[in-house]
């Protein structure tokens, strides 16, 4: 397999970060060279554990997802009967929880947990980034920050789905879709927190806003809160759940949110650049890939010595 410029650069950075010696480097280069050009052949033929093969999310990220998961659903299901408190279905729901006042208290308490989760997440990413910078292993391409490459990946992926390209683009740990989704969620959370706080602390907002704007701000927040919630529900139900449950290759469920691991097949298909880092970081992964590809007769045997020219 011939590497693209981007993949080559990722590989070189990873060699540097992992302090890879010459012998190991030659071994990695030789393995990559003997892989077939068509990545589909690789990911369709490797063996994967459905629960996951390669590390992806730390326990902190998994905990944050779990907290967001639970608070999101409970906020949606306590928020609706508060908004439609006189509806026939809302009344028994509120009575079940102990009355509208109790539903409100539950809604606000869970909101605090959601805000805590967001703060916890911001701390995790800041300290996580600081740690990798200190260890001299930081690579912005491995983060969720949007880069120009994501625009090209998006275009190339659409071209692939339209049958105009042979292969999907080589994407990094976070692909364009995940980046859009992540920032949409971040924006949504901010809107919900600001608008929710406007209902809880109207005096505070009135005190910091110009007098002529304060009431407009309140009205805007009254509109934003339920409509942003509706948007979030739509995104979660149609987009996120499709991607992690129903999409071909993920059905019936992707386990990453529990195990923190991604399947080898998925990593090679959608996060090939991250897979290259996995190959550099883990001799076991190289051994397994070599064994699997050999077993299927997919390793191209090139003459040893050529790899040193790379």
């Amino acid at each position: 397999m011939k590497l693209t410029e981007e993949a080559r650069s990722i590989l070189e950075t990873s060699y540097k970060h992992n302090r890879i010696g010459d012998t190991e480097r030659q071994e990695i280069e030789f393995l990559i060279e003997s892989l077939p050009e068509d990545r589909k052949l690789i990911y369709k033929n490797v063996d994967s554990n459905p629960i996951g093969d390669l590390e992806r999310y730390s326990i902190h990220i998994r905990l944050q997802h779990m907290l967001t998961f639970v608070t999101f659903l409970t906020l949606a299901f306590t928020g609706l009967p508060i908004l439609f408190l006189h509806a026939f279905w809302a009344e028994p729901f509120n009575i079940l929880l102990g009355g509208i006042e109790i539903t409100r208290i539950i809604h606000r308490t869970i909101a605090m947990i959601m805000i805590f989760t967001m703060v916890y997440h911001i701390f995790t990413i800041i300290f996580g980034a600081m740690l990798t910078i200190k260890q001299r292993r930081f690579d912005v391409r491995r983060t969720i920050l949007p880069l120009m490459k994501d625009f090209y990946d998006f275009r190339d992926d659409i071209l692939y789905f339209a049958g105009k390209k042979e292969q999907r683009p080589e994407m990094d740990k976070f692909m364009y879709k995940q980046k859009i989704h992540y920032f949409a969620a971040g924006f949504g959370n901010t809107v919900m927190i600001v608008s929710g706080s406007a209902f809880l602390f109207p005096e505070f907002w009135a005190s910091i806003l110009p007098e002529s704007y304060a009431s407009y701000f309140q009205e805007l927040m009254r509109l934003s809160h339920p409509h942003e919630a509706l948007l979030a529900l739509l995104v979660i139900a149609f987009w996120h759940w499709y991607n992690v449950h129903l999409a071909p290759g993920r059905f019936p469920m992707q386990w990453t949110f529990l195990s923190g691991k991604i399947t080898r097949e998925h990593q090679i298909e959608e996060h090939f650049l991250e897979y290259l880092r996995n190959l550099v970081e883990s001799p076991e992964e190289r051994e397994q890939l070599r064994e699997m590809m050999n077993r299927k007769g997919l390793l191209q045997t090139s003459t040893p010595g050529e790899e040193t020219t790379a």
């Binding site: 994967s48 459905p50 469920m253």
Partner: peptide
């Protein structure tokens, strides 16, 4: 090739899929 799920993995995966639907 992703290996098939065992019984309990199927229980977890399909019940959460049902919950999602």
């Amino acid at each position: 090739m992703i290996s098939p799920l065992n019984f309990w993995q199927k229980v977890v995966a399909y019940s959460s899929l049902a919950a999602v639907l």
